[in-house]
Nucleic acid binder design. Structure first.
Lengths: 376, 376
DNA sequence: TCCGTTTGAGTAAACGTTTACTTAAACATA
DNA sequence: TATGTTTAAGTAAACGTTTACTCAAACGGA
């Protein structure tokens, strides 16, 4: 224990600095104690075992230990054995923070996602996590709640933490976001969204998928088809789907009117409301294309409550093929997106930008029991 | 561009080192180029703006800049203004890695969770993320898949990354895990699980909750009650619930036999199978207590397929009150756990271990439409 | 034998912060 | 006028790695 007189000035500074510490009161008291006892002890810092300790114990330089840890050449078998033994004995764990500082690589990637607790996002997330783990990366999640300010904050936090890449799921890229992305040159990949700014992305062809879903209904003999679309202002997930729906019907000679489309926000609740509105605005409706499984299940719920049989009276087709779809009663026919795979692949693309893949992922219709067929 | 002759030795070493690099081929080629051109350029390291640049630009020392950044005293208003202006102009972003190295705090916490894509875990996760964000922490997710080896790997990875705390959700703590937890002195909080090892936790009283759910059915006039339990070996989530179920029936004079209980794994599919088995082993069954909402929905599905009306013929009560419950048809009566709040509070407990809260969180029965009442 | 290469190391300078300690000037008090 | 305190800084040493460069010994070929 080193002894040293602490001057008033130093005590003052110490107290000021200690304010930034979480356990400020304890620290302050400890410092006061040190002052009174005229003792300056560094005993409160609990050092963990570093590469230096290993080096000392094994009688080699830190460079050698580092080389052994990183499988670089430059040591004899004997040295290696000795060092590895010491590492095990001391229970040495390398400090990834120090490593990150010098390597400028943190082996960490950040994920921005509107919501963690919905099945769409969490399925993508599961894929992301899986692939990241396989590549030895950790993933930081940031729940944006579709809040612009929050998103920008997260973006900055991720840059400060020096993540090696960022994945943005289902989020519209504003100019602000893009500016932040552009200035920090950290790779970004978009999943289930797309931007006019030049950013790599992975998503399904929403227009085509909507077109196909609608055509599917037509092929099953439907002609009075309505749509419960997503958030009206959403240029990524609503506009193309509405257009796909409209075009598909136009192409078979059906004119789409306003009464046939209602807008929600992709949620269960908005599915209930949307179905209710649709029933009023378009009473002849026999089949409904819902822009999300959640809304489809909401619709299902309302129809059940009203005693309207699905698919006998009204057919329903969803979008996403989340876990909800197969668990619905009756099981929901829906447009399937390969969410898990999209998540996995986004990591691949992020870590290997050279990899030029087709950003448009294949969709298909998962046929279950909510679409009635008149065709045979 | 500095010029310098590269010796063969150095080239050799450089090439060896570059193997550790992701883009090894490019690096190697670049080095070869340098060799051929007899040029040694450091141009490939893209430096970002550091505190030194700010200091230089503002004509102060780095210490002053640091103090300003951290709101510590020791500078005039004028200096502060000048420095802040420079910070903005240069777009300086502090390096959290360097900060973490010296502070031994990374403002990051790790979350171990069996699965990200189920509603139970993701609801807890949402709470965790929310509270962490409010406290200025980032969260790293680790999907364990209930795999012991993978979990240990994650634990080590988190320690290497020097997270400030770890939250473990729904995972049984093996001796191995505990050893890892014990040696690294990083705080840990358990959510929706519990251990014989002395670790703080937050969960619902499973025994009592199961007891209450069963009693609820009894009070509604049921006497032929079955149970679809979880994984048989699960001492945390199955044993107490089975015991609660058994005790509740015993207490009203009903003897519980093996045929009245079937075991699954909490999943939708196992709910289907469980219901099927139960129907055979205990044909008189009129009400079923399911140990998860997923299984309850599975049961619902099977009953629907068989044309068995819920709740008229068979009543169902679930467990968890995940989002599935309210979206089921009919909406599922279930035992509600405050998952989101448990997630939020786990962060509070982690960051403030002094906080001595009751680890047993309140449950209640969310009454919906799957339990028939004979009582009036 | 001489010279170039390989092997098995070591030394020390980064990486970008924070902060302990120092210092000079200004201010306050007796 | 001394003396002590406060203010507004600066200097330099950490933090725990990686790695550029150095070096001596061993080796190999002509």
């Amino acid at each position: 224990m080193k002894k040293k007189k602490l001057s008033i000035q130093i005590i003052y500074r110490k107290l000021e600095y200690s304010k930034t510490d979480m356990n400020c009161i304890e620290t302050a008291l400890f410092i006061c104690y040190c002052f009174l006892e005229n003792v300056y002890a560094e005993s409160w810092c609990n050092m963990s075992i570093t590469i230096k300790d290993v080096a000392k114990q094994a009688n080699v330089s830190v460079a050698t230990v580092s080389r052994i840890l990183n499988n670089l050449p430059g040591y004899s078998d004997e040295t290696q054995q000795r060092v590895k033994k010491v590492i095990k004995e001391l229970g040495y764990q390398p400090n990834a923070v120090a490593r990150g500082l010098i390597n400028r690589k943190t082996k960490t990637i950040g994920v921005l996602v509107p919501n963690v607790s919905d099945l769409f996002a969490s399925e993508v997330l599961a894929g992301i996590e899986e692939q990241a783990h396989e590549f030895g990366y950790s993933v930081m999640i940031c729940k944006t709640n579709h809040d612009g300010k929050r998103t920008i904050n997260y973006l900055h936090a991720l840059y400060e933490k020096r993540v090696d890449g960022i994945i943005i799921v289902s989020e519209f890229i504003t100019l602000d976001y893009y500016k932040a992305i552009e200035t920090n040159n950290v790779p970004v990949v978009l999943v289930a969204t797309q931007s006019d700014y030049p950013l790599p992305f992975i998503k399904v062809d929403d227009y085509q998928a909507a077109y196909d879903a609608t055509t599917y209904l037509v092929k099953k003999g439907h002609s009075h088809i309505g749509m419960i679309a997503g958030t009206k202002s959403d240029a990524i997930s609503t506009t193309p789907r509405v257009k796909g729906f409209t075009d598909a019907l136009n192409d078979v000679g059906i004119t789409v009117t306003n009464e046939m489309i209602t807008y929600g926000d992709f949620s269960f609740k908005s599915g209930i409301e949307g179905m209710d509105k649709l029933l009023k605005s378009y009473p002849k409706v026999k089949a409904v294309f819902c822009a999300s499984d959640e809304m489809a299940v909401g619709a299902l719920s309302l129809l059940y409550k009203r005693g309207i049989r699905v698919p006998e009276r009204i057919s329903l087709i969803g979008y996403d093929n989340t876990a909800t779809a197969e668990k619905a009663i009756p099981p929901l026919t829906t447009v399937a997106q390969p969410l898990y795979k999209m998540g996995k692949d986004s990591i691949q693309l992020l870590l290997n930008p050279a990899l030029k893949v087709n950003p448009l992922y294949p969709h298909h219709i998962a046929e279950r029991d909510t679409v009635h067929s008149y065709s045979e």
